[in-house]
Design a protein around this nucleic acid. Structure first.
Length: 273
DNA sequence: ACTGGATCCTGACTGC
DNA sequence: TGCAGTCAGGATCCAG
């Protein structure tokens, strides 16, 4: 579900409510997520105050004096700030973190592809984060970086964008959208795209992520922010989830194809090369 | 070294 | 109404 704009929207939503607050309880109802929620999370985090709420790619990092809570929302995860005691937990509310001052951070994830874990080491060096590529909205990310990453590679450029070691935080929606904006065919081999066109792609990716962030992210089915509200960028999607509908530029019907078991949407006329 | 495919899990939706 | 099949914002592991 959530890609960079949705995770960042979540970060901005929860940060004011948890920063500076002390963790008074951690309740794990279902530890079996993509990897087990470690027992030491509850044991060690309780009693510490959250100093920072950061994001790296699609990971959220709650920084405490003695460690970091690392959270990934997977395909169907969400985090919400609730009053404590909040509404009765449903069967997919797997983890609650209760704070001083009467707030509750609740991790909800029907498909359980998400992660809630704990590290006492340098968080950016954690195995989940260590290999991530650059942040697409940070200075230093540009077309040249994509060009170098794509050189000598035969994978489709769409797959290159989904590779977190190439660029962090890009998922299925924004990969399709960026390729649409840049006029690049999603199946084009990564090694057969010019530097100039990679520059256009990097710019398109930055623009679409920034616009999606301003809209509070994309809600297709179940994404909600820290306050339980959906994002509105679905209204602005030009290709994703629009199979058969007219291309906003040339009216040719948008096509859906499967690449690496994921749907890709594109305009066969605007994205020929 | 790269690449595509299978896999984890549940829910929503479609067609019979 | 029920049931089977398909698909879904992710990421890792495995052969070939």
């Amino acid at each position: 579900m959530p890609e960079l704009p949705e995770v960042e929207t979540t970060r901005r939503g929860i940060a004011p409510h948890v920063t500076g607050r002390r963790i008074v309880a951690v309740t794990v109802r279902q530890p079996r997520l993509r990897e087990p929620v470690p027992p030491e999370l509850a044991r060690e985090a309780v009693g510490q105050a959250v100093e920072t709420v950061a994001r790296r790619g699609k990971y959220l990092l709650l920084g405490l004096p003695g460690g970091t809570i690392i959270i990934h929302l997977g395909m169907s995860g969400s985090l919400r700030v609730l009053a404590d005691p909040g509404p009765v937990a449903d069967r997919h509310d797997h983890v609650d973190i209760a704070f001083s001052g009467g707030r509750l951070l609740r991790f909800h994830d029907p498909r359980r592809f998400g992660i809630v874990t704990w590290t006492t080491g340098e968080p950016l060096a954690h195995r989940l984060l260590a290999r991530l590529g650059p942040e697409p909205l940070a200075a230093g990310f540009d077309g040249h970086h994509l060009y170098l990453a794509g050189r000598q590679r035969r994978v489709a450029v769409k797959s290159l964008l989904l590779d977190g070691t190439v660029v962090a935080g890009v998922g299925n929606i924004y990969a399709s959208e960026a390729l649409f904006r840049a006029g690049i065919h999603p199946a084009r081999p990564a090694g057969r795209i010019s530097l100039m066109r990679y520059r256009r792609l990097a710019d398109a990716l930055g623009a679409v992520l920034t616009e999606a962030l301003a809209a509070g992210g994309t809600t297709l089915r179940d994404f909600v922010d820290g306050a339980g509200r959906p994002g509105y960028f679905a209204l602005s999607l030009e290709a994703y989830d629009r199979e058969g509908q007219p291309c906003p530029r040339c009216t040719t019907p948008i096509r859906r194809v499967t690449q690496a078991q994921r749907s890709t949407y594109y305009c066969p006329r605007c994205q020929r090369g």
